[in-house]
Design a protein around this nucleic acid. Structure first.
Lengths: 227, 227
DNA sequence: CAGGAAAAAATTTGATCATATTGTGATGAT
DNA sequence: ATCATCACAATATGATCAAATTTTTTCCTG
């Protein structure tokens, strides 16, 4: 009779102590960030209560947070969906990402130990493997992990937060681009970044980061332009 | 018996059709943005359901959104409060605001008609009046209105969103600074901005905006440093 | 009699609330 | 000082109400 008691949200038992709305938020956030949801796809509260096996209130709160993040959009009528980017949007993102993220990597440079740089290099090697394998999901996760790990050392929570918000916004569209062109067409400047980090040349790190961003985002802009 | 039916949230009958959680959000957002809440002040759900005369669910959702905005902080235990800024935080904000908002004003320049500039000038004149009167609340509102109105013409929603989020973060602290030093000590570069707008000189507009931001924020940083 | 537009019913989804449950900090006894 | 207990606030649930979309029905026109 009491079989409604299975309130497991995160399936895999990672953090059982956190409140349900946190778990729902992070779960949905991952799905959006790594492109498991298609741009334009409607997101319903009741659909999520079913698929995530969670209550209604936690789901509502998670959705509100993600709307605030720009990861979901409220469509005037009460519907919520995954945002579709215009090329105008992407242009703004290119500017914002370069401003914020070059500064983050600049500030991180001085704080990175050689061991930290080695760690980044290992991430980049795994990243190359996902590109070779054509593993889009793995590519998206590791590419984000590379940047996230680098920026974390900048110790600049406010800039970091702005950057995260931008990643959330373009996640779904980036997935579509990768799905269309494959991972082969996504070379990056990570090797340049690592080299500059070893030299502790902050200006060069910032420049390489800017190039990495511009390269990836331009591809996305082009792809959106001729749909 | 049925006297629980007074679900009026917005008191003044402005937009009755919008859902309650939207109204609560905007109401709370204003309170934070214009410094009616002091940094460090705890924010409780039940306190808000009473003071805003709203239900519990709408208040919960509004709080989640504002946490996501950075306008409120979740303190680990279940407490929520208005953020206190460190001078490190302010430094990051100065960089981010200058990057984002100079670009917004640069892009707005070409789109502004002479009538729009006149409108901005009228706002600035009212702003001067609040400074003369020592009207802190009025100052905060009109200063925001000036920038908001200018940036709106840039037609760049994503950059705009990033800028708004930053304003929400420093609102409470700016109020404290104004309260301590009075409005006299807050001269601005709005006259320079207006002059450059009339000349349609985008670079100059961007530069004047950057100076305006730097001037105001440095004052805040100094004030936070020697508390 | 067929086709299509408008109206109305039905279904789906969102919004809100009252209430039960759980976790947190505080108080007081040992 | 440490630990158990208590009170309060936050979290979560399911029920209920309202809005919007979709489907069905109806009626008019060609």
């Amino acid at each position: 009779m009491d079989l409604i008691k299975n309130k497991a949200v995160g399936s895999s038992g990672s953090g059982q102590k956190r409140p349900a709305h946190e778990q729902v938020y992070h779960s949905l956030r991952s799905q959006i960030m790594y492109g498991e949801l298609v741009p334009g796809q409607p997101v319903t509260i009741q659909g999520l209560t079913d698929s995530l096996n969670a209550g209604m209130t936690p789901v509502r709160e998670a959705i509100r947070r993600l709307i605030s993040d720009g990861a979901l959009v409220f469509q005037g009528n009460r519907r919520v969906s995954v945002p579709m980017l215009s090329s105008r949007d992407v242009k703004q993102m290119i500017y914002a990402r370069i401003s914020i993220e070059s500064e983050l990597s600049r500030q991180a440079t001085a704080n990175l130990t050689p061991a930290d740089v080695d760690h980044l290099e290992r991430i980049d090697q795994q990243l190359d493997q996902t590109i070779a394998d054509g593993d889009v999901s793995g590519y998206l996760r590791l590419n984000h992990l590379f940047h996230e790990t680098l920026y974390a050392h900048a110790d600049a929570p406010i800039l970091n937060d702005l950057a995260e918000r931008l990643w959330l916004r373009f996640g779904p569209s980036l997935r579509v681009v990768c799905g269309r062109f494959g991972t082969q067409s996504l070379p990056d400047r990570h090797k340049d970044i690592i080299r500059a980090l070893r030299d502790r040349n902050a200006d060069l790190v910032a420049k390489a980061t800017a190039q990495d961003i511009e390269q990836g985002m331009e591809l996305m802009a082009d792809s959106l332009a001729n749909v």
